Simulated scan of single mutants.
Amino acid sequence: MTVCAIEMTTTGPFTIAADGSYAARLAGNGEALYAERWTLAGPEPYAVPLPLAQPEEADSELLPLTDGRVLIHRRVAERHAFALLYPTGAAAGPRTGELQLGAVEPEEGRDVRVRLLPPSPDGRDAFALAVTDAGTTVWRVAGGRSGPERVARIPGRCSGGVWLDRVGRLLALDRELDGTTKAVAVDLVRGGEVSPLLQITEASDDRLLLADPDSGLLLIRSDAPGEPRLGWGVLGSSLPVRFPECLRLGDAHPFAVQPGQALMPETSGVALRLPDGGIGLWRPADRHLFRLGAPAGWLGGTGLWSPQGRLHLPYATPEVPCGIVGMSLPVSPPPPVRLDPVPPPPTRPIPLQQAPLR
């Protein structure tokens, strides 16, 4: 593994580009923080520090693009400023270039909360969510023609953010409106047109945590069963949402789904960050969860599945400041053979309702 040129002890959230080629995080000592880009596409990962003359604030957000540049979101007084960072490779040593992109300003004196959305599947654009008491705005903050561009205005307070396709057109958000939270689909090409996505019951809070466009697998958190539970469904399917007992895990959070499983959601691997800091590996076809210990220095509860079913986890330790460890989902044992088959106990499935996405 390649050792970084600047010693690092502090780590911020670790974000992986849509195609797995790059990643980015804040690194540094104490308040001397700087952006750091990881290259993941080669035979071994390596990290490139991107320091500037002034340290970054701890609440700055980073998002890697597939061309190797890193988008940074900074709060400057009441403004939310965006810029692209990149290594210049100067003869005197590594230097960091910076391209200012503009800022999102407060709306009519209202306090606005802005955060970056997950990397767009196209790898070129980047989007941010701006939430006020009056509603939610989706901004394109990189990849547009000039500066941040408003692409959608949505009534209600939105959170979350999950991409539903491979081109960066359909975005799922969890919208709080009239006292309940429901996942909705926002079409960024059709002027921010909003369609219902999840409504398990009329009064339930139904949030979308993760989606895989290849298989259509959806990972959901809902209180429809009587308490907040993890469940799974299939995008565009009339089959009900299932809440497996093995996913009754409290505040566990799914962070990666195996891609490339076209029309095979039941066989898609899912990785979860468990409340005790460990890792859970699960398939919808399985009736149990494989529990594994997390590697030392695991970064931010993140990782990336390969289409072949191998989970890659980033980690950083004093000995290995830039590392990736891989693990595979164990093969489930076959069910025992019964001489007298016992039918499964009756269940009361909860239907998944989804409006067609045009």
Rank of each mutant, 00 (worst) to 15 (best):
191 G>A: 10
275 P>G: 05
179 G>R: 14
304 L>Q: 15
93 G>L: 08
9 T>Q: 11
343 P>W: 12
10 T>N: 09
246 C>W: 00
157 R>F: 02
8 M>S: 12
310 R>Y: 11
146 S>W: 02
161 G>A: 04
331 V>L: 11
62 L>I: 11
191 G>T: 12
278 G>Q: 04
36 E>K: 01
222 S>H: 10
164 L>D: 02
136 T>E: 05
12 G>S: 04
61 E>H: 05
119 P>N: 08
328 S>T: 14
326 G>R: 08
169 R>H: 08
64 P>N: 09
122 D>T: 00
334 P>E: 06
8 M>V: 08
34 Y>K: 01
357 L>T: 07
187 D>W: 01
305 W>F: 15
154 I>G: 04
92 A>K: 05
337 V>E: 08
188 L>E: 02
122 D>S: 02
104 V>L: 04
60 S>C: 15
180 T>Q: 13
245 E>V: 13
161 G>S: 02
176 E>W: 08
138 V>I: 15
224 A>M: 03
28 G>Y: 00
248 R>P: 05
17 A>P: 03
185 A>N: 12
341 P>S: 08
126 A>R: 00
309 G>F: 00
199 Q>Y: 09
237 S>H: 09
105 E>M: 11
5 A>S: 09
70 V>Q: 09
315 Y>Q: 06
267 T>L: 13
24 A>E: 08
251 D>Y: 09
254 P>Q: 11
47 A>T: 05
203 A>E: 15
146 S>E: 14
39 T>Q: 12
301 G>L: 00
113 R>L: 12
51 P>L: 03
175 R>D: 01
248 R>S: 13
206 D>Y: 09
38 W>D: 09
351 P>R: 04
289 L>E: 04
10 T>V: 07
115 R>N: 13
76 V>P: 06
12 G>K: 06
56 E>N: 13
358 R>N: 15
100 Q>C: 01
286 D>P: 07
35 A>G: 14
312 H>L: 15
109 G>F: 09
45 P>W: 05
252 A>G: 11
353 Q>E: 11
268 S>Q: 09
69 R>N: 13
